[in-house]
Design a protein around this nucleic acid. Structure first.
Lengths: 130, 130
DNA sequence: CTAGTTGCAAAGAGTTTGCATGGCG
DNA sequence: CGCCATGCAAACTCTTTGCAACTAG
């Protein structure tokens, strides 16, 4: 099962070029409009999510965003998104693992780091006036 | 502006009875079906969000969830949601503030704690077999 | 050849909006 | 009385699904 179709390859390669970004189904569908249909996009997103190659994350509005994790580059990374500029970055490894441990110890909660998206104001924006 | 209509009061009182829960527009609309219309629910949610009385949080699927923060009970609390049982709890204050500080120091990122929802497995579920 | 996959269009779910009516202050 | 808010239904957006045709293995 799971054929390597042209469509699937296009979608994966789209993700591979955007390792740190969270992209929506619409982003993919419009970028690949000539080679992949909208339904194939949705079906492959569901498949890839089930395989654990991508992770669904929150978005300010109500569209689902997906991030590619199969490359390992974002594996186990907590992402933080700036509410001013929208940029998304990784939480530094030390802060993340210390927090993970604290959560485990204090609350008995095992964090799924890759699924978490934090909100706040990034370094670049905290200087600026609102 | 912002009249205290019966509908608005009903919605706020609905939230006040569920301080730690994240509720959807549909939850409210069906609970108050006889006194508040669906559009009034959505319009009031938008209003309350703008006023900062409720916060919108992520949900596994694509429906928006809202949490009441005006009571102060959840103010500045990071919430964590169990991906197995769906329960949502507060991250203990120490873990949260230590993490907040680490983020600030290491990454220059100012966390909006109230807007964050973490995912993982809670104490009760981590014992159980999947 | 067979099971997984695709496209298209239609169906769904959740949310938003236009408009006339109703109610708070 | 004036302005904001409500109800209802229609409009929208994003996502899912049925089905026949197609294709990777």
């Amino acid at each position: 099962m799971n054929y390597a179709t042209e469509q699937r390859k296009s979608i994966i390669s789209y993700f591979e070029k955007r390792l740190d970004e969270s992209v929506s189904a619409a982003d993919i569908a419009s970028a690949l409009a000539f080679s992949v249909s909208k339904s194939a996009v949705y079906r492959n997103l569901a498949l890839l999510e089930k395989e654990g190659k991508i992770v669904r994350v929150q978005s300010g509005d109500r569209t689902a965003l997906y991030r590619y994790v199969a490359s390992g580059k974002c594996e186990g990374k907590i992402h933080m998104s700036c509410v001013r500029c929208g940029k998304t970055e990784h939480v530094s490894a030390e802060a993340a693992s210390r927090f993970e441990k604290a959560l485990k110890d204090a609350d008995g909660f095992s964090l799924n780091k890759g699924e978490c998206l934090l909100f706040g104001v990034c370094k670049d924006c905290s200087g600026r006036v609102k």
